[in-house]
């Protein structure tokens, strides 16, 4: 059941990836020592208060920071105007950091090529390792020229960042702060 869902997700046009394995669901609860910070949740399209356009370049975002009202539900329309695959991911800095080795693994398995997503390799990785990719509401991974959408309901408080965790991109500056305020 879970597996077929994963596989179908692989073929989605705009995907967000997180490494998952049969054991990961169990492990998920223990992320961050059991105190998962409140980063918000996938938003209801009906409750969207505004749309923010995000353009991803190599390797930076435009705009470079976000001002969000507490509890606001925002539709992000994200366009990859660069020449490389980029991610738009809303999380805490610690969560981004934890996510990066997983992205690295996808690079090592040939799933994530510099300028494209290799779906064959994704399937092979899935088959050989039991690792797959699944969609999470907080992120989108885009090939050059592609666009995607994230609808997110932000919490009232929290230290959030939007970031690209493709190897090396965060480190070279592809992240920005989400300023939560009223």
């Amino acid at each position: 059941m879970l597996r077929s869902k994963l596989l179908s997700a692989v073929f989605g046009a705009s995907l967000s990836f997180a490494l998952i394995s049969s054991g990961a669901a169990l492990a998920a609860g223990s992320h961050d020592g059991g105190h998962k910070p409140n980063t918000g949740q996938p938003g209801d399209a009906a409750k969207v208060s505004r749309t923010i356009e995000i353009t991803m370049y190599d390797n930076y975002y435009e705009p470079q920071s976000l001002d969000i009202k507490e509890g606001e539900t925002v539709r992000f329309v994200i366009r990859n105007a660069g020449e490389f695959v980029h991610e738009f991911n809303i999380a805490t800095a610690a969560m981004h950091e934890a996510h990066r080795p997983e992205m690295m693994m996808m690079v090592e398995h040939g799933v994530l090529e510099p300028d494209r997503i290799n779906y064959d390799a994704a399937k092979a990785m899935q088959a050989s390792m039991g690792h797959g990719m699944h969609k999470e509401g907080n992120s989108v991974l885009l090939e050059p020229g592609k666009s995607g959408e994230v609808i997110w309901t932000f919490p009232d408080t929290g230290e959030l960042e939007f970031a690209c965790n493709v190897p090396g991109h965060y480190e070279t500056g592809m992240h920005g702060p989400v300023k939560l305020g009223n």
Binding site: S22, A24, A27, P101, M105, V107, M129, G130
Partner: peptide, 22 residues
Amino acid sequence: TMPDGSIMKGTSHGGMNHGAQG
């Protein structure tokens, strides 16, 4: 055992040729 504590199963070493990372 993966960094996140999950278990990576059924890995053949041969298939790990690219799988160094981390």
